[in-house]
Design a protein around this nucleic acid. Structure first.
Lengths: 193, 193
DNA sequence: TTATTAACTGAACGATGGTTCATATGAACG
DNA sequence: CGTTCATATGAACCATCGTTCAGTTAATAA
């Protein structure tokens, strides 16, 4: 340790504060000076930690995303219905728990450097859903269907529900999760053909 | 008609050009100078037509929204299934047709003056879906359910599907409409309960 | 204590972009 | 024609940040 090597404020706190600001005001509405003030540092100090605003933002996205690491990894192979229920519940709960991050993803539609992340996310999730569907059809639990399209629609429905929750604050997490699962599995028909 | 009362370029053209720019680049990325150039006017002239950027934007939103006037007004009262199918199809087709406007609504999450419009839209649509569901349950076409929650989820699913289409360009409009209707009515289960 | 240097400060710089305004243009009217 | 005035022009103005940097602070080593 060499000469004053202790930071006045840890970088993790900067990221935390910045996350709160970015997710509530939006990227371009959040000023560097504002972050500095809320953190208790000068603007200059921020630039000693991060090259610029974009890198600070990026760092924060990486930091928040890192523990998404496939919780959806160990879904029951042998029980497609349970797998689906778990998948939906995990997704919605995660989104709610990480709502600041997720808000940013919905909100900052026009930040081009988020696009690839979104795309990648879609691909991964789409694949997982397809696997569940395929397994379910093979097992006779699910009816035959266009797996590709249906997986897209299911993905979309889950994201839509999350969006609704985040934007309008509508819906309780648990109830929403159940309703969605119910809708997707049984539909609203009284007697499904 | 008094002294040179003909505009070099009609305001409708300004709105049209601005719509294209706002929906592809985003509100704050679209510069007044850029709009002026694409329209074939000077910046100053824009300010003779519209008080400022925000009003120009607002005018364009109003202009685009005005003919949404309840196409969803005359859904068949006596056939809930058909009503739902029609409602979904209308919604998705409309969104695709007016995709520039809809993109803006998804994209400009942080423009506070869009919030009330979003809220109002949700309320209207939620009401319509609830009516369809209630009618269907009464008729015995649909199973008993929490109408409030289910309507929210259905709304969310439709918006999610539209978002998917607009963001990723994924899915054909007709096919998507069918898949969604199918999912919502029948679910994916082979033998519903 | 003194020297060293990492960490910090905040005024100043510069780029960007919305808005204004002095000036120009030209269609209609007398 | 010449006058009028709605319409148009675009350079200049100004506010808002992101970013930089010369100077300051204070922890550690000597």
């Amino acid at each position: 340790m060499n000469h004053r090597s202790v930071n006045k404020v840890p970088s993790s706190k900067i990221l935390k504060v910045a996350l709160a600001l970015f997710s509530s005001r939006g990227y371009s509405e959040t000023k560097m000076a504002e972050i500095a003030q809320n953190v208790g540092l000068s603007v200059g100090a921020l630039y000693l930690r991060f090259k610029n605003k974009e890198e600070l933002f990026w760092e924060l996205i990486k930091d928040q995303s890192k523990d998404f690491i496939d919780r959806t990894k160990n879904l029951p192979e042998d029980d497609p219905l349970k797998a689906l229920r778990t998948y939906i519940a995990l997704n919605i709960e995660y989104a709610f728990q990480k709502r600041q991050l997720i808000s940013i993803f919905f909100r900052e539609y026009n930040l081009t450097f988020l696009k690839p992340l979104r795309k990648k996310f879609f691909k991964t999730q789409h694949e997982i859903i397809k696997d569940i569907l395929t397994a379910g059809i093979k097992r006779g639990t699910f009816r035959p269907m266009d797996v590709e399209d249906t997986a897209s629609i299911i993905f979309a429905s889950i994201r839509g529900a999350i969006l609704l929750k985040l934007i309008f604050g509508i819906g309780d997490v648990k109830a929403m999760s159940n309703s969605l699962f119910n809708l997707i599995t049984n539909g609203i028909r009284k007697d499904a053909l």
